[in-house]
Design a binder for these strands. Structure first.
Lengths: 200, 200
DNA sequence: CTCTTTTTCGCACAGTCGTACTACCAAAGG
DNA sequence: CCTTTGGTAGTACGACTGTGCGAAAAAGAG
C-alpha cells in the first residue's frame, strides 16, 4: 500500500475549508479553486476526494448539519424540564461565534438549495429535525409541569419553532442588534409565558 | 428628440425580469446575459440602463422592497386594533403566491448581501423597517386595549418580530408543510395570547 | 431630406469556471 | 532493489462570466 491518508478526515478538512470560503466570499463566489487554496492543496487533489462540485457542496452541508446534531444528540436523553428545553432551543441559537458561523454558512446553503435538488433534500431534513427537536423541548416542559394549564404542547411547538428560527436568523445576520443576551432574554420570556395558564 | 422610452419603466421591467431569473435559476446563476434574455433584450441594451451588475442587483432589491412597502404604507394610517395589527403582520407573510415569490427572491438576496456591502445596507434597512412595522402593530393592539395587563408593547414586539419573520421563512421555503392557513392560525394564536393578562 | 440623440445590437476581450487528462511522487509489499 | 498504488501537481479545454467598444437603427427637430 502506498502513502496512507485518512480519507474521511481529509474530506472533513476540505469541508471545513469550504465553510470558511463561503463565509469569506459568499457561496456565489465559492469555487473549487478557492476551496482548494483554502485547504492548502490543488484543485486536482481535491477532485480526488470529490469527483464533482455538487458532491463537495452536498457533503459540506451534510457535515455541517451532523456537527450540530452530534453536539446535541448525546446529552439529549438526560435533559429534563425547563433547563433541558432551554438547552435544546439554545443549541440552534447563535450564542457564540462558532454557532453563529454555522448558521451563517447554513443560510448561504439555504439560498442555494432552492435551485439544487440534492441540497434541497438536506434542507427539508433539517426542517423536519429542527421541528422535532422543538417539539421534544415542549414535551420536556409538559412532562415537568412547566406548561400552563390549557396549553397544548403541539400548538405551542408550532409557535415556538418559527420563533426560535427567526431569532437564529436575526442573531446571525445582525449580531450587534440582536446579541446573545437579547436572544436569551426573548427566549426566556417566551418560556415564562408558556408556563402560565392559558385563559380562553 | 429620438426614440422616446420610459426610462424608469424600462428599469423596473428589467428588475422584474431579474426576479424571475433569480427564482428560476438561483442568484448564483443569475447573469447579465440571462436577465437580458428574460427581459427580451440584449446584454448591451441592458447595460444602457445599468452600467454594472452590482447596480442592477442593488436596484432590483431596492425595487422589491419598495413594492412591499408601498403596498402597506398608504393604508397604514387607517389601521386600528387587532385587525390592523393582523393586516400589518400578515403583509410580510407569504399568504399568496405573489408574496411568496417576493420573500423567496428576498431570501436569495439576503444570502448574497452577507458579502456585498451595497446589498448589506439595504438588508439592514429592511430589518429596521420591519422591526418598526411590528412595533407599530403592537402599539395598535395596546391602543385598542387588546394587549393584556402587565404586558409591554416593546417586549412583545421583541418576541413577535422574530416569530413573524420565522413564519415568513418557513412558509416560503416549505409552502406545503406550512401553508397560508397554518401561518394564519399560528399568528392568530399568538395574538390571542397577547390579549391575555401576563401573570408574573 | 438631413441632422441629432437615444436606444439597440454584435463582437471581442480578458478572466474564471468546472473538469478531464497526464505525468510525477511517495510509501508500502514483494 | 523494484513494483504497485493512493495521492498530488500541472496543464488544457470548452463554456461562461462581466464589460468595453463601434456600428447600426430609429425617431423627432430643423
Amino acid at each position: 500500500m502506498p502513502r496512507v491518508v485518512d480519507h474521511a478526515r481529509r474530506r472533513a478538512e476540505i469541508a471545513e475549508a469550504l465553510w470558511r470560503v463561503v463565509r469569506r466570499d459568499g457561496i456565489t463566489a465559492t469555487s473549487v479553486r478557492g476551496v482548494a487554496a483554502e485547504a492548502g492543496t490543488s484543485p486536482s487533489a481535491l477532485r480526488h476526494y470529490f469527483t464533482t462540485q455538487d458532491e463537495l457542496l452536498g457533503f459540506a452541508l451534510r457535515t455541517l448539519i451532523e456537527r450540530v446534531a452530534s453536539r446535541l444528540a448525546p446529552e439529549l436523553p438526560g435533559l429534563e424540564g425547563r433547563d433541558g428545553a432551554l438547552r435544546i432551543l439554545g443549541e440552534v441559537l447563535p450564542m457564540d461565534e462558532e454557532r453563529r458561523a454555522e448558521v451563517e454558512v447554513y443560510l448561504a446553503f439555504v439560498a442555494r438549495s432552492t435551485t439544487d435538488p440534492a441540497l434541497r433534500a438536506v434542507r427539508d431534513d433539517v426542517d423536519e429535525a429542527t421541528r422535532a427537536a422543538v417539539a421534544y423541548a415542549l414535551q420536556l416542559l409538559e412532562r415537568a409541569g412547566e406548561l400552563g394549564a390549557g396549553r397544548s404542547a403541539a400548538a405551542e411547538a408550532d409557535r415556538t419553532y418559527p420563533l426560535v428560527d427567526g431569532l437564529a436568523v436575526h442573531g446571525t445576520l445582525w449580531p450587534e442588534r440582536y446579541p446573545p443576551a437579547h436572544l436569551r432574554r426573548v427566549l426566556e420570556h417566551h418560556l415564562d409565558e408558556l408556563s402560565t395558564a392559558l385563559s380562553s
